[in-house]
Simulated assay, not measured.
Amino acid sequence: MPILDAVLLFLAGFLSGAVNAVAGGGTFITFGAMTLAGLPPIVANATSSVTQFPGYITSTLAYWHDIKHFWRGALLLSLISALGALSGALILLGLDNPSFRALVPWLLLAATALFAAGPWLKPAPKPEHEAAVGSLVGSLAQFATAVYGGFFGAGMGVMMLATLGLTQSGDYHRLNALKNMLAVVIAAVAILVFVSGGVIAWLQAIIMIPGGALGGYAGVWIARRVPQNAVCGFVIAVGLFLAFYYFDKG
């Protein structure tokens, strides 16, 4: 692999981890980088789950002060997330690359629209000290989000933050911490399915993983200091570019 490609993949991993920690959408970056590098769409999508996993872990650890207050209550949502991710990943492996490629631009447009609408989808959080988890509506919403996350993942963080804001309590950082914790579960289950299916590009993943881990930790710092509008605008631009790129290739 050319050195320039390796550098670009590492930077894509870093940016992905950072924007995931802020509000999600990092899959746009990793999926796009590997697509432009010539990987088949299913492989690029599956490998994106691997590259983002360290970023989910590091950003979750950075929010540990918040998570330790509610992690026991979040176990039900974690189980629901695992079941949803398993379903979504198995659906993906049931498709061939041409079939998935035909869906990709529409998935990207939908994910970009969801990402752009994120600020309006999330209501003002309730100020209770601990996030309430386990309601029927919240459980169903989380299952649907996890299915999507296991299948594609782009925009999953925004979707999850929006549904958590509608169904759970807590301030923004508490909801973001819960989102990151559940994202770890979803990614872990999807990765196990993708590894068993042999659809991971390990060389590209190994190059991007260190960048994703660093970006995930740095992203929490960014989330507390940088306006979300700047990050969201960048992610939306990447999503639209990729959608039109796939429409053009189709």
Rank of each mutant, 00 (worst) to 15 (best):
V137K: 13
L114D: 12
P123H: 13
A131V: 09
V137C: 11
W106R: 04
E128F: 08
E130Q: 11
G138F: 04
L114T: 09
A110G: 15
A131I: 12
G138A: 09
G118E: 06
W120P: 04
P127R: 03
L108N: 06
V137E: 09
V104N: 01
P105M: 13
W120S: 11
V137A: 14
L140R: 06
G138K: 01
P119Y: 05
L121F: 02
L114P: 11
T112P: 01
A131L: 15
A113W: 06
E128L: 10
P119F: 05
L108A: 01
A131M: 14
L109T: 03
E128A: 14
A111P: 06
T112M: 06
L109G: 03
F115V: 07
A111R: 08
F115I: 00
A113Q: 00
A117I: 12
G138W: 01
H129C: 06
K122T: 15
T112I: 00
K126D: 15
K126G: 13
A113L: 15
S139C: 10
K126A: 14
E130H: 11
L108D: 01
A111F: 03
A124E: 13
G118I: 00
W106G: 07
H129K: 15
P105T: 10
G138I: 01
L107Q: 04
V104R: 01
V133L: 11
A117P: 03
L107P: 06
W120K: 14
G118D: 04
A124R: 13
L107I: 07
S139V: 05
A113H: 05
P105L: 08
F115E: 01
A113Y: 00
P123F: 09
A124P: 05
